[in-house]
Design a protein around this nucleic acid. Structure first.
Lengths: 338, 338
DNA sequence: GACTGGCACTCCACCACCCAGAGTGCCAAT
DNA sequence: ATTGGCACTCTGGGTGGTGGAGTGCCAGTC
């Protein structure tokens, strides 16, 4: 159905349209891409490509632009992977060097990704599924108000306010001791489970306090950190001010909705696999004129989350995909080394 | 120089231009604002106002629009304070109810402010200057890597990674004991000071470890939390897509620069005082077509930071100022109650 | 049968032009 | 001081014409 030349033509159309930002006609095509055929031949092929739904004309006497289906074919079969420039490699190194904690890593990653791709970047907080509880503390601020503090083996510190109800320091210390003995070394879900049973084993005197603290603990332990998402590079949207209604506005709106962002990144297969969602393939309707390039990051299933970028469907897929993949790999390794 | 009628006319021009978004002419003015004079009279007055630099014409034969100087006079002397609607009052209550910690308060505040004003909102993290150190912990994750954790009386938890260098648990506990004894109850600056002297009093065996931990401690204690800033309501920029180059793009760019944001909010006089910076009054040149409405928030000098909104100079100052003030007060009280 | 040159056709982008309408400034009259 | 009248200016929208880019189709060639 689609012979080599037609594919070459489609590739040229995508490439040209992405860089020139204008519908591309048959003459320009043969000139700029050294096709050794006449414009008429190209026109015939374009007619077929259009019939098959890979390209379209904005209006009768204009050149062609790729459809979502055209981009899809390009991404799947035609895009040569563009290796990162050495400047980009260096950027990755410099950006990440000296990150102190997970927050910092995420912040730097999002800036990095935005800078390299010149798009809007989105990074999900990593899930530390293999991390275990390392330390547990109950700090009283006033006789009434206290703070439950949990530290896991990956160095993540969680906190949750608790109502101490005027409990005595001894009781608090007692409860803490029991919790530490029972829970340290457990993963989040086991810890939550074990804590629940522990609540019933407490002596009567500790019951009310225990209930409050354990409720807080369960809440913290079962909160999924990957529901947190950080965004950067929003000013890059400026480059698409010609597509205000179709790109800028919808992206801005999507960015304030954590849920939408998570759905956009979601369902990434595995680390190294870059997922591309083009136009209508997006699960979120207002973004049907934009594409998402995302990837999982992490190491050996220990740390896991997604990151990616959003931009107009008319984007440089090979470069963007290469950048997303490179950053995902680097961050994964970086987190693994601690 | 400017009699009552001229001021009334200026007020009418500002009001009308803000709501209609179009230059306003003499006829429309007398009709819509029941001025009991003829358009010709209004024209004469407008000529004076223009001469004085309060209004201008985009071109001959267009109506007048206010200049920055005109808005300034309006804000200083003409704007009647618009009380919040009951819906807005309720919004404030509902939004803030159930905030669990400082992070949460800040997040909710920024959303609230963005929602009420329909502008881009900026909230600085509160400085807890009177807060004292309540708890200090050194948690070891691996023999090499550890975490210094500080909790202050306001319930803020700080963390900083430390290089344990394989120190023994006993040494760590010993060091911790000394630090707790010396520092708990002190404010951040005192704690940093005291810790520095303590470093020199340590027995030789604890010296290396002590140096590392105290360095981390000083860094955390002297970090100014108010340098952190949270932004919300970015999609509201969508309402000004007609002023893409002058408003949308510069604001987007400013939003990614923490430093710029801090300068924008900076120099607020005191709680309750709402600061308005109009157009060229802004210290950041690209935002010379936008205005900033900001206020300090906090209580009795204990908690202190700024919040505000950014929007086009053509904004509803009375409402915006009322909203910013109300939110600042409410959040201040809310934080005070804990 | 695949490719090509030629040709008629279509449609957009651009320009010039005109005109109504809104708004002004000025002036003489009240 | 205020006003009605008037001549003037400028914008914005609508109209019509034109050049050019690009197409589809067809008959001819290799």
């Amino acid at each position: 159905m689609l012979d080599d030349r037609k594919l070459t033509i489609l590739r040229a159309i995508v490439t040209d349209y992405v860089s020139m930002r204008e519908p591309v006609g048959s003459r320009a095509l043969v000139e700029r891409y050294h096709l050794d055929v006449s414009p008429a031949t190209v026109r015939n092929d374009m007619a077929v490509l259009e019939e098959e739904g890979y390209i379209m004309q904005p209006h009768t006497s204009a050149g062609r632009i790729p459809t979502d289906k055209g981009y899809r074919l390009f991404v799947d079969r035609l895009g040569a992977v563009k290796p990162l420039s050495s400047a980009e490699r260096r950027a990755i190194e410099t950006f990440m060097a000296g990150a102190v904690d997970v927050d910092d890593v995420v912040r730097r990653t999002v800036r990095l990704l935005a800078q390299i791709t010149q798009q809007v970047a989105i990074v999900q907080y990593p899930v530390l599924s293999r991390a275990t509880l390392r330390h547990l503390e109950i700090v009283s601020l006033t006789p009434e108000r206290g703070l439950l503090i949990l530290v896991n083996s990956a160095g993540k510190v969680d906190q949750h306010p608790v109502d101490l109800g005027g409990a005595s320091p001894d009781d608090i210390a007692d409860l803490r001791g029991r919790l530490v003995a029972a829970l340290v070394g457990l993963g989040p879900s086991q810890a939550a489970e074990r804590a629940a049973t522990l609540a019933e084993e407490l002596p009567d005197g500790l019951r009310p306090l225990g209930a409050v603290v354990i409720a807080a603990l369960v809440e913290v332990a079962s909160a999924d950190p990957s529901t947190r998402v950080v965004v950067g590079g929003v000013p890059n949207l400026t480059r698409f001010s010609d597509q205000y209604e179709t790109t800028v506005r919808p992206v801005l709106e999507a960015l304030e909705e954590q849920v939408v962002l998570l759905r956009l990144l979601g369902e990434v297969a595995g680390a190294g696999d870059v997922l591309v969602r083009i136009g209508h393939e997006n699960p979120y309707e207002p973004l049907h004129a934009t594409s998402v390039v995302a990837s999982g990051y992490g190491t050996s299933s220990d740390i896991w989350a997604n990151l990616g970028v959003v931009g107009p469907t008319r984007m440089d897929y090979p470069s963007t995909m290469a950048a997303v993949r490179a950053v995902a790999r680097y961050v994964g390794r970086f987190l693994a080394e601690g």
